[in-house]
Design a protein around this nucleic acid. Structure first.
Lengths: 212, 212
DNA sequence: CCTTCTTTTGAGAGTTACTCTCATTTCATG
DNA sequence: CATGAAATGAGAGTAACTCTCAAAAGAAGG
C-alpha cells in the first residue's frame, strides 16, 4: 500500500525510447523530490518552503506546483498501487483471501525497505510528526481503499460498492496505516513484516484475549 | 464517535451559574458556527471565506481563528468523545466487547440523528465532498482512536499502546468512518444504526462469503 | 538549417487560510 | 469605583496555492 512503498526515481518497468521531453520531465520530478527530502532533513518539514525547494531544484515555484498539487504530495506520491493490485489479482483464486493479502503486503514491504530504506523511513516519520502529511496520506489511502474494494469484490463476488466490502477495505487500510505509525513511533525497531502479520491476525480474528 | 455527533449549541449537561464572560463565549462560538453553516448552504464550502463568516457572525476574523484553529474545525468540532467513552466504560465488564461497542454506537447515532439531523447530514455531506474536511475528520478520528485504545485496553487488560490494541482501534474507526461516508453517498437512505450493525458484523466476523 | 506547431516553463499578480503583535475594550473582583 | 485579567479588533506578515500570459524549448516536416 501507499505507506509502504517508496517514491521511485523512475516509473517502474517500461522505459522504451523516451523523447528528450519525457526524460527531462522525469528529471525535474526527481530533482524536486530530492531537493525536498534534503531540505526537510536539514530544516524540518514546516520550515521548508516551496520557494526553497524550487530554488534548490533549479526550477521556478510554478513548476513545482505543476508537478505536485500540494507540498505533502512531493513527499508522499508514488505510483505503486496498481502494481500491488496486479500482484494481488495474480494470486491463485482458491487461496484464502487473507493469505493473498499477506503475501502482497510482504512483497510491498520488501520493495519499500530494500529499495530506499531512508526515504521510506523519512516518509513514515513525517507521517507521525506532521499532521498535514498524515492527513494527505489518509486521503490517498482512501483512494487505495477504493481500488482495494474492486479487488476484494472481484475475489469474493460481492459488489464493490457494497457496504460490507467498503467497510472491510477501509478498516483494513486503517489498521495497516496504524502499523506504519507504530513502527515509526517505536524507532523502526523489529521487522515491519512481522508487525503486519500481527496486525492482520488481529483484523482477522479479533483481539487476542477477546471473549467471543 | 466524532462523525456521528452533531456540534452542540452548548456543552452538554453542566451549566451552573456561568459568568457573563463564559456565556458570551458560548454565544460567539455558536454564532460563528451558525454563520458558517448558513453560508455553506448558500454558497458551498470553498466559496465561503473566513471573512464572510466573521462578518455574518459579527466578529472580527481574528476572533474566528481564536475560536477555531482551522476552517474545517468550525464544521467538525464537537465535544462528545469523552461522553461516549464514559458511556462505554459504564457498560458491564462481562458484556462481550463488541456488544458494548454496538450499544454505544447506537447511543451516539441516536443523539446525532435526533438532536440536529440537518447539521449532522450537512457535516457528512461535506465529509464526502470536501477533501479538506474529510482529512480533518480523519485526523480527529485518529485522536478518538487513541482514546478508544485506552478503553479497549482497560477492558481487555492489554497494553493501550500495544500494536494489537492500536490496530484494532484504528481499523474499527476506519470502518465506522466508511459507514458514514456510505450513508451520505447514498443520500442518507436507510437507518444509520442498521448500517453500523452490518459494518460491525463485518469487522467482527469478516466478509460474509469469505472462506476461512 | 529553418519554420511551424505544441508543450513546458517562468514571471507576476492575486487569493486565502492562518499567525503574531499590540492597543483597546470588556468583564470580574475587592 | 479602581485595579487586574481576559477577550477582542486591527493590522501587518507569511506561505501555500491559483491563474494568466508571454517566452523558451523540444518535435516534426520541408
Amino acid at each position: 500500500m501507499t505507506s509502504m512503498t517508496p517514491a521511485r526515481t523512475s516509473p517502474p518497468a517500461d522505459r522504451p525510447q523516451l523523447g528528450l521531453r519525457e526524460r527531462k520531465k522525469i528529471k525535474t520530478r526527481t530533482a524536486i523530490r530530492d531537493a525536498t527530502y534534503a531540505l526537510i532533513e536539514e530544516q524540518g518539514y514546516e520550515a521548508t518552503t516551496i520557494e526553497q525547494i524550487a530554488e534548490r531544484a533549479e526550477v521556478s515555484p510554478s513548476t513545482v506546483f505543476r508537478y505536485f498539487p500540494t507540498k505533502e504530495d512531493i513527499v508522499l506520491t508514488d505510483e505503486y498501487d496498481p502494481l500491488l493490485l496486479e500482484e494481488l489479482s495474480a494470486r491463485p483464486a482458491d487461496e484464502p483471501w487473507m493469505d493473498s493479502l499477506r503475501h502482497v503486503m510482504r512483497y510491498a514491504i520488501g520493495a519499500a525497505t530494500t529499495d530506499e530504506p531512508e526515504v521510506t523511513k523519512l516518509r513514515m516519520r513525517l507521517m507521525v510528526e506532521v499532521p498535514a502529511v498524515r492527513s494527505r496520506m489518509m486521503e490517498t489511502m482512501s483512494v487505495t481503499g477504493g481500488l482495494l474494494c474492486q479487488a476484494v469484490a472481484g475475489r469474493t463476488g460481492l459488489a464493490p460498492d457494497s457496504l460490507e466490502v467498503r467497510v472491510f477495505s477501509m478498516s483494513l487500510i486503517g489498521g495497516l496505516l496504524e502499523v506504519s505509525m507504530y513502527w515509526a513511533e517505536n524507532d523502526f525497531q523489529g521487522d515491519l513484516a512481522d508487525l503486519v502479520d500481527r496486525a492482520m491476525e488481529v483484523m482477522e480474528k479479533g483481539l487476542p484475549t477477546e471473549i467471543r
